[in-house]
Design a protein around this nucleic acid. Structure first.
Lengths: 140, 140
DNA sequence: ACTATTAGTGTGTATATGCACGATTATAAC
DNA sequence: GTTATAATCGTGCATATACACACTAATAGT
């Protein structure tokens, strides 16, 4: 029974792949004091302008409460604004001017990391895309 | 510039895929009070019987300090033993009887999750394997 | 209008992860 | 033997993630 579980387990493989990639992006963005998770969240807020946390969580395939805390970090840095109104549950999110400025500065750094990773993967990318889409939509 | 960064970013895609898969495995193992990360670490210790944390971290493509803390959790539950000797730096890891027992109980649960995921992916799996191997060996 | 259900949110607690540091052991150079 | 270098380890701090729970707003049913 002590077979090679680690080598076959899809959780191990996807996790370690994700960690490696995340490190590459985080490293690129470090000069700006932002992580890839935060950067992409910021970009998503700018693009989607969600009316609620839940809406954004659904669109980003993220756990709602994880997103709540991520958004709080961005808010603490003044990069986004959370609408908090008396007697209203929904929390609309909007990017701030400071957030837009950071997004502009971070974009080329993200792009270079993105290019690196895509080049590493070469023509596997299209297959990888298919693979990742499958995972994303899987009813786990 | 507010293009669809989230949809293209490989970090986002691999992370969300890994999260989805991890949730599936964690859910299967929850009755035993262990996570997929801990289960695979336990299995790796049983199989490799590493003479040092660093050795294991290298083989599992994990960050050393993350592994240190993971091993501490397993040790706290009495599932593994960490060799701590006066004047010796290396920390050999060995699975305990309790650990072996848990491994046996957890195995079929892991297997069912593994099967689920592989079925979901269907014949993409071979491509996925290639993809994941590429990522693993990438010099990020 | 009243009540039951659903939707939306945040917090407590715990694990997972990574980096920067500092500390000690082991090894190599001389 | 002494000193320099490398190997090995742990901790502090911060972010990321998930689940269980509790709370309140909104909506539907009557």
């Amino acid at each position: 029974m002590i077979e090679n579980i680690t080598g076959r387990c899809m959780a191990v493989r996807t996790l370690s792949a994700a960690r490696a990639i995340t490190r590459r992006y985080d490293s690129a963005l470090r000069p700006l004091g932002i992580t890839i998770t935060q950067f992409t969240l910021l970009a998503a807020v700018a693009r989607i302008e969600p009316d609620s946390i839940t809406e954004l969580a659904d669109k980003l395939w993220m756990e709602r409460t994880s997103l709540t805390r991520g958004a709080k970090l961005l808010e603490a840095d003044g990069l986004i604004e959370r609408r908090v109104e008396e007697g209203v549950r929904k929390r609309g999110l909007r990017i701030s001017d400071k957030g837009i400025k950071l997004l502009r500065e971070a974009y080329p750094l993200w792009q270079s990391a993105q290019q690196d990773v895509e080049e590493q993967l070469g023509k596997q990318v299209s297959e990888a895309n298919h693979f990742l889409d499958l995972l994303r939509s899987a009813p786990f």
